[in-house]
Structure formats: structure tokens, C-alpha cells
Amino acid sequence: MDLKVIWNDFIEYLRAETDIHHAYVKWITGIPFLYIDSDLDKSEVEHLIRKWSARAMRGKRLHSDTIFFRTQPSLFVYRHRFYVPQEKMFCCGNLCVDCVRLKN
């Protein structure tokens, strides 16, 4: 699965919001930082991040994680990432108690 497509959709959804002036991601040492320029308050910006990341991940086995990093006047910076959950996806044959065959 190519996460670039997910990131592109997510950023485009954020940019389409009328209350967000600019939204972009900057990768620093492999860590994605999300920059959002908006006049909204922090809770409203975080709501939009959750809303549009869920929309971008729809139909895929992904999770997202958003951590507030810093703020400047009308600029919010978050450490945001999309990731695949770490759980077993196949049976290894060792009769594990958390075997995928035992799930509903």
C-alpha cells in the first residue's frame, strides 16, 4: 500500500476546508510534520484532522496518530502519521493463543 496516495488525499481534503488557509506536510528526518495555517482554535483544527484522516483511510487497514507539537500565531504544527496496525495477519502454525484463525 502506497501511503503517498493517502497523504495526498488527506492534504487535499484539508486544503478544501474554507477555514484552513494553508496545509502541508514536511518530512524531517523521516518524521512527517503537518503544518496548518488557520484562524480556528486548536480543538477545531484537531477535529478537522481526525475527520479528514478518517476519510483518507476509509476502506484501508490503517490507523493515524496525531501529536500536537507547537503553535505560532495562526500556525499549528502536529506530528501526524498513518500506520498499519501491528497484529498478526496470517497463521504461523505454532498454535498461538492469539491466532487469526480463532478470531470471529
Rank of each mutant, 00 (worst) to 15 (best):
M1P: 09
M1C: 08
D2E: 13
K4G: 01
V5W: 07
W7S: 01
W7H: 05
D9T: 01
F10E: 05
I11W: 08
Y13G: 00
R15L: 14
I20W: 07
I20D: 05
I20N: 05
H22A: 03
H22K: 13
H22W: 04
H22V: 04
H22Y: 04
V25S: 03
K26A: 00
I28N: 02
G30E: 10
P32S: 13
Y35Q: 06
I36F: 11
I36Q: 12
I36W: 06
D37R: 10
D37W: 03
D41F: 10
K42A: 01
K42S: 01
K42I: 02
S43A: 12
E44Q: 15
V45H: 09
H47T: 08
L48P: 10
I49F: 06
R50S: 12
R50E: 12
R50C: 05
K51P: 01
K51I: 10
W52H: 15
A54S: 14
A54G: 12
R55T: 08
G59D: 09
K60Q: 07
K60N: 03
R61G: 00
R61F: 00
R61T: 00
L62V: 06
T66M: 15
T66D: 13
F68L: 14
F69M: 14
F69S: 14
R70M: 15
P73N: 09
P73V: 08
S74R: 14
L75C: 05
L75Q: 06
F76L: 11
V77I: 15
V77T: 09
Y78G: 01
Y78W: 04
R79M: 12
R79D: 03
R79H: 06
H80C: 03
R81C: 04
Y83G: 07
V84K: 12
P85G: 00
Q86M: 08
E87H: 06
E87N: 05
K88S: 04
K88W: 03
M89Y: 04
F90E: 14
F90G: 09
F90N: 12
N94D: 06
L95W: 00
C96P: 02
C96E: 01
V97W: 06
D98T: 03
C99K: 09
C99E: 09
C99T: 06
V100S: 10
R101V: 02
K103F: 06
K103C: 05
N104M: 11
